[in-house]
Amino acid sequence: MVTSATNFSRTGLSDWLVQRVSAVILLAYSAFIFGIFLVNPDLDYAQWSTLFDSTAVRIFSLISLLALCGHAWIGMWTVATDYLTSLQLGASATAVRLLFQIGCALLITVYLLWGIQIFWGS
C-alpha cells in the first residue's frame, strides 16, 4: 500500500471511479451543448440567456463544472506524480511538485467559483 496525501479522494479506486463518472457527465454535457447548437443554427443571445435561466440547465451546468474540476485535479495530480518526481528532478522534486499542485488547486478553485458566479449570478 502506497500512501498519498494529495490525491483527490480516499483511494486510487475512488479517484479512478470519479475520473470515469466525471468523464461521462462531461460527455453528456458536451452532447447537450452541441445538441443546442445543432438544433438552433441561428441561436441568438436572447435564446441563449433564456436557456441558462432555467434551473435545470443551471444545475446540469454546475454538476458538469464540479465534474470538470474533479476530473482536472485527478488528471493534473497524475501528471505531476508521473513527471515531477525525484527520478527526474532530484532532491527538489517534492517542493516543485507541491508548488505545481498548489498552483493547479488554486486555478481550479478560481475556475469553480468564477463558473458558479457565471451560472448562478444575476
Partner: peptide, 11 residues
C-alpha cells in the same frame, strides 16, 4: 485487495 487500492500500486 486492501493493499492494492491506493493511487499507485494498480491504478
Amino acid at each position: 485487495l486492501a493493499g492494492l487500492e491506493d493511487p499507485f500500486s494498480v491504478f
